[in-house]
Design a protein around this nucleic acid. Structure first.
Lengths: 233, 233
DNA sequence: CCCCTAACGCACTAACTGGTTACTTTCTTA
DNA sequence: TAAGAAAGTAACCAGTTAGTGCGTTAGGGG
C-alpha cells in the first residue's frame, strides 16, 4: 500500500472530501469527539500490540484500525511507547478490578480458591490480549510497568485476597499452614497462562488440539485439582 | 554507529587490513572456516532472537556479533526466518537431548519425577534464551516449528518418558492412577517457565526480588512439592 | 455571530532494515 | 601450479517506519 501520494483512507466511504454533494447529506458530518477517538485508538492499539508485540506493532496500522489519523495518536499519547504503557496499565487494572468484583472474602475458602482458579482461566481465555501484552512487556524487562503506580496498589489487594483465603482456610482446618500466598498466586496464574500462551508450539509437541472445548475443560479441571491438592492438609 | 562508510568492525583488533605489517605476522591470517562461521552466526542469532524476538532482532546486529558479514547469513541460512527456524529447532533438540540423558527410566519413580522437575527448572535458568525463543515462536503461531520433523520425534520420546515414570509409579503404588502425562508435562514446564518468563513484571507486582538465590531455591522447592502432591495417592 | 481552541488530516522525512549485487581472497585439487 | 570453487566483503537498494510540520475544520464561549 501507500504507493504514491494516494489517500490511505481511500477504501473508506469518504464520498465527501472536497465538494459537498447534495445527495446523502447525513453521510459523514464527522463529529468531533476526543474521548471516543482516544478510546478507539486504545482498543485498536490493544489488539495490535497483542498480535505483534510492542516492537512488531505498527503505528500506521493502529491508526487505520482505530479509524483515526496517526497524528491523533501522537497528539493524545505522545509516542508509541507511551501508548503501549497506557494499554498495558489498562489491561492490568482491568483484570485486577474483575478479580476484586469476585467478592471471595465471604465464601467458604475452598470454594473461594476454586472460583479464583476458574476466574483466572476464564479471564485469560476471554482476554487473550492480556497474555501477549504481558509477554511483550517482559521481553522489554518491564520498563513500562515500572512507571505505573496504580498497578502496585491493585497488586497489593490481589495478594491480600489470596492471603485472606489461605488464612481462613487454615483456621477452618481445610487448608494446611505455611503456603506462601505469592507462590500460590504465581502457580494459579502459571498453570493457565503457560497452557494458553504456548498453545501453538504445544499443539505440535503434544500432537493434540489444545483448544477444543473438551481439551479446555479438561485442563481447567486439572488445574483446579492441582491447586486443591497443593493447599489441602 | 555506522555513520559513514566506516568499517563496522573498527572496534576490533584489526591491525592488519590493507598492508601486511612485518610486526605481528600471526595477527590475522583470516582463516576460512565455514563451520566455525556458521556456528558463530547461530550463537549470535540465538542471543539476538532471545533478546529481541524474531521480529525485533536485527540481521546486521547478528552479523556484527558473529564477527561475520551479513552476506554470510544469507549464504548459509537463506533468510532471517530460516535462520530463526534453525535456531529454534536447535534449541528444542538441545533440551530434549539433555532430558534423554537424564536416564530416568531405572530410577525410583518419585526420584525420577523430582529429578525431571529439577532438570526443567535448571535448564530454563541456565538457558534463558530457550524461553524467549519459544515465546517469540508462539507469537508467530508456531509457523516455524510446524516445518520441523525432528522436533516431533524428540517430543514423542519426551511424553513417553513421563508416561513411563507414571506407569511405574502407579504399579509400585506411590502414584495415583489416571494422571494424564501430557497435562503433567505441561504443568511441570508451566510452574517453572511462567515464574522465569514473567520475572520482570512479577517483581513489580509482588514487590519482591524473584531472582535472588533464596527466591530461586524457594520456588524450586515449591514446584517439587506441587508436582509431588499432584501425583501422590 | 464571530473567534479561538482543540480536533483532525495530509504529506513529508530521516533513519532503518532485510536482502542483493558485484567484487576480492583463500584454499583445494586435477 | 593453474584454475575454479568456496569463503568472505563492502556498498548499495527499495521498501518501511516512527515521528512531525503545517494547514483545515468543527463547535462552544463570549
Amino acid at each position: 500500500m501507500n504507493t504514491a501520494g494516494a489517500d490511505p483512507l481511500a477504501l473508506e466511504d469518504m464520498s465527501v472530501t472536497t465538494l459537498a454533494d447534495p445527495v446523502e447529506p447525513a453521510a459523514k458530518p464527522r463529529v468531533r469527539d476526543a474521548e471516543a477517538t482516544k478510546s478507539r485508538i486504545l482498543d485498536a492499539a490493544k489488539k495490535e500490540f497483542a498480535k505483534s508485540g510492542m516492537g512488531g506493532a505498527r503505528v500506521d496500522v493502529i491508526a487505520e484500525k482505530a479509524k483515526a489519523n496517526k497524528r491523533m495518536i501522537y497528539h493524545y499519547f505522545g509516542s508509541k511507547e507511551d501508548l503501549f504503557r497506557t494499554v498495558l496499565e489498562n489491561a492490568y487494572v482491568d483484570i485486577r478490578s474483575a478479580e476484586q468484583k469476585l467478592n471471595l472474602d465471604h465464601l467458604e475458602p475452598r470454594e473461594a480458591l476454586e472460583r479464583l482458579v476458574r476466574f483466572t482461566w476464564g479471564y485469560y481465555l476471554k482476554n487473550p490480549e492480556f497474555i501477549t501484552l504481558v509477554n511483550s512487556e517482559n521481553l522489554h524487562r518491564a520498563k513500562h510497568l515500572k512507571q505505573s503506580e496504580v498497578v502496585k496498589v491493585y497488586s497489593r489487594k490481589f495478594v491480600a485476597m489470596m492471603e485472606n483465603i489461605l488464612t481462613r482456610g487454615v483456621a477452618t482446618g481445610v487448608f494446611r499452614a505455611g503456603v506462601d500466598p505469592v507462590q500460590l498466586n504465581i502457580t494459579v496464574a502459571a498453570i493457565g497462562y503457560y497452557y494458553l500462551t504456548n498453545r501453538f508450539t504445544g499443539a505440535i509437541l503434544f500432537e493434540r488440539d489444545l483448544m477444543s472445548k473438551e481439551a479446555l475443560e479438561e485442563r481447567l479441571a486439572f488445574n483446579i485439582d492441582t491447586i486443591m491438592r497443593l493447599v489441602s492438609v
